[in-house]
């Protein structure tokens, strides 16, 4: 389980997260949604051990997070993370040397599913294929916790769709938790169990997708409602 307890994170006086407490358990896909600058990415970076909380604690399987937590946490950054001078095959080789839980067979399968050729140079890949590649490298790990920061950002609908299908195909919810931050709620809603709305560093609401829909609205409408009519969410 990932446990954030009264976590605050400030950057030069700006509060990115403000007294946040959440638990994430295995077996679930959770979406963290909210506007730009709401604290979505910061919360993932805290869980990935890339930044430290200013206050409170972040525990994963009861262990405080630090850089070593990458042993059990697969984190996909919003930025390009694969060196451009690698080929697809070389980036796979490199990733397999970095993480003992990297599953080569699964990686090959994901590459095939995503229709990526191992001989292609990363710098010659389209933006969509770079998105597919970093997702393939992340999902190829048998890590109990997978964190994806804005996996759909700037990608066209076809690429988003193939990434959604890849997620469903290659996540093992008996052993893994999947946490995704996103703006593209509509695409991802069918694969979420739970959704957390965050704004100005605070959690506004935490709900199951079924629970939201039983009240007769989808997640976008739910988010618009709790964000308040005055300052629409604009998804």
């Amino acid at each position: 389980m990932i446990r954030l307890q009264h976590v605050s994170k400030s950057y030069l006086g700006h509060k990115a997260l403000d007294d946040v407490s959440i638990d994430f358990t295995k077996g679930k896909v959770t979406g963290i949604v909210g506007e730009n600058g709401s604290g979505k990415s910061t919360s993932l970076k805290l869980m990935a051990g890339l930044v430290r909380p200013s206050k409170g604690s972040v525990l994963i399987d009861e262990e405080p997070t630090n850089r070593q937590i990458s042993r059990i946490v697969a984190y996909m950054s919003e930025l390009d993370q694969v060196p451009p001078f690698f080929t697809v095959g070389e980036s796979l080789n490199f990733a397999s040397t970095q993480f003992p839980d990297f599953d080569r067979e699964q990686a090959e399968e994901i590459l095939a599913f995503m229709k990526l050729e191992k001989t292609q140079k990363v710098k010659h890949l389209s933006k969509g294929n770079r998105g597919r590649l970093k997702m393939a490298l992340t999902m190829a790990r048998n890590a109990p916790y997978i964190l994806l920061d804005e996996p759909f950002s700037g990608l066209d609908p076809m690429v988003r769709n193939s990434i959604v299908k890849g997620l469903i195909k290659f996540v093992d919810l008996e052993k893994q938790a999947l946490i995704i931050t996103t703006h593209e709620i509509r695409e991802i809603e069918p694969i979420l169990d739970e959704v957390i709305a965050i704004r100005k560093g605070k959690i506004l609401s935490h709900n199951t997708v079924d629970g939201i829909r039983e009240e007769g609205r989808d997640v976008v409408e739910w988010l618009e409602d709790i964000y308040g009519s005055g300052e629409g969410y604009g998804a």
Binding site: K169, P190, L192, D210
Partner: peptide, 14 residues
């Protein structure tokens, strides 16, 4: 469950 989840694009839990 898994095949049908992939085909229809939904969470395997669903």
């Amino acid at each position: 469950v898994r095949d049908y989840a992939i085909e229809t694009g939904v969470n395997p839990n669903t």
